[in-house]
Design a protein around this nucleic acid. Structure first.
Lengths: 310, 310
DNA sequence: TTCCAATATGTTTGCGCAAACATATACTTC
DNA sequence: GAAGTATATGTTTGCGCAAACATATTGGAA
């Protein structure tokens, strides 16, 4: 117990003994056994985080904000990847709960029913990220993708665009992108307009894919048309296709997108997009985890960034 | 014990009892306590992975290969981020060791001396990724960044380039980029050549930064010049700068890079780069972890991809 | 000197699980 | 039906740590 007291700097121990213990611990390379320690304490400092993908910087930027807040505390983050698979997410959550984590962080509002039950039943501190359109398991922080898509539709309509196309990827797994597409279509419908052309791919989004699908959607010269993309990667690819083909932007083809990632600043034109407050979402999730916020839902607003492509 | 036998599917239990146990477990939402279980078994199925950054797809692609292999086993991956900080890496490794993981995966060969000692002393199964130029703590898999840079230098020299510039970022923390720059310079020196201009930034690499630094290095019209970039993001930014400025490539400015990331395919020109076998590195690391490989070092070769920019 | 508090160390206990070691019951084979 | 084997269940134990509860020892204040 004296050794335990020294190593945890807790309770009374004489200077003399403290020094000897620390020296000995150093010498034998003592490393606390968390399995035993956390087991005895009946709690851990682990936060389990499940994100859909590591290759989409949206999630890593959110994580970055989360980490910056959590790093100041004694909590530890352990990240796992679900590959946009709710079944896999369920298994990861189950495995994580077995470690009795201090909290669980999930992405999006759509999960396997068993995942929701598991977390509710075990009364785990759960934060859902990025989306707020739905009923959170416990707490959530994000933006309304519905509103974001509606704002973009309104912007395009106001700017006089009348013909619309949609270019998207991985809609069968990306629930947020799906919500945006539906809301965008709905807003058009409210104004008596519709998406005339659609280019979709099940592949993960990328600039190359955006370029290919844009080439595809434009191949029968349907210009002028305003293209709404599932995200910035796709839109940037579209932009590169158009500039290389000498297509006039925004006269013949308008480009609108979602996310407002930093890499857009390197593109030849400023793409109109909707900036999602990713870092901030992560920060707030961190503050949720530290018990600094009580609200069930924190809805952030994001910002319509009007560039030169609409 | 009968319950334990049912849940682990181990030993003899009657059909009757098995069913009753499973039903009850389901009803009360039983979740095994890994803290107790792993503690009793004196081992865990956790693999601690430390990568420098989540926003560099090099690391996430390696992770992807690693995950695909590990996912088939019963092992679990827990990822943490060091932010290119060896001190932080040390703390993460220390925290991970407290969980008695089945293995530790680190990035690169350069670590705090205490990290090396800790891992050696505790005899932990350690794999170092991406680099092989150095002495691994235990095992490593990667490519020789020195050779990659030398190959690129040779290629440029053979193609008749005689004036050279270097555009790089975050060299104070990115040990691999640093090694490439040094090897590139050395190879030039071996041929009586040198880097005449350098544009550096401490910021993390990005297309935008590449664009800015390229503008900077070219501002006093030093063409013709062959620019070696610290990586593809930077080079892509450089390319976008040159095309938007109407600079002739490769006549006035040649562009050479490292990594061979997929997004280059969306660029207006095929950039000459050196493809690092990222996914494969991850896969092999996974097979190391599963005990399928014994070699101390696995050196992969990579490939010089000659594009239109040299 | 006496007494009480502050300081310092020691002892017992339980966390939940599974290995190891019983013991009990059913099912063959002769 | 005896003997042996396969199947099924039960009991004890310890993993390393820290909470809870002793028990010393020291240092002042009265």
């Amino acid at each position: 117990m004296t050794v335990s007291r020294v190593l945890r700097d807790k309770g009374y121990v004489s200077k003399n003994v403290t020094e000897k213990v620390l020296k000995a611990a150093e010498e034998i390379g003592y490393v606390r056994n968390n399995l035993a320690g956390s087991f005895a304490e009946q709690s851990t400092n682990l936060i389990g985080v499940v994100i859909p993908s590591l290759s989409n910087s949206v999630f890593t930027e959110v994580l970055s904000g989360f980490e910056d807040v959590i790093h100041e505390s004694s909590l530890q983050i352990a990240i796992s990847v679900s590959h946009y698979d709710q079944q896999r997410e369920f298994n990861l959550v189950k495995d994580m709960l077995a470690w009795r984590p201090a909290g669980i962080v999930l992405t999006g509002m759509e999960h396997d029913e068993r995942t929701r039950n598991l977390l509710k039943q075990n009364n785990v501190n759960t934060i859902e990220l990025i989306d707020v359109d739905g009923q959170p398991i416990s707490k959530c922080v994000g933006l309304s993708h519905r509103s974001a898509a509606e704002a973009m539709a309104s912007h395009l309509i106001e700017n006089g665009h009348t013909r619309f196309g949609y270019v998207g990827s991985a809609l069968q797994v990306d629930e947020r992108a799906k919500k945006r597409k539906i809301a965008f279509e709905q807003k058009l419908a409210d104004n008596g307009l519709k998406i005339e052309r659609t280019a979709l791919s099940p592949e993960p989004s990328s600039m190359l894919l955006g370029r290919q699908l844009t080439a595809e959607i434009l191949q029968d010269n349907c210009q002028p048309i305003a293209l709404y993309y599932s995200n910035d990667d796709m839109a940037a690819g579209g932009l590169l296709h158009c500039t290389s083909q000498g297509i006039s932007i925004p006269k013949d083809v308008a480009i609108a997108s979602f996310n407002g990632l930093e890499f857009l600043d390197a593109m030849p034109m400023r793409i109109t997009t909707f900036k999602s407050p990713r870092y901030e979402i992560g920060q707030i999730a961190g503050r949720y985890m530290l018990g600094e916020i009580d609200d069930r839902i924190t809805q952030l607003s994001g910002e319509l960034l009007i560039g030169d492509t609409t």
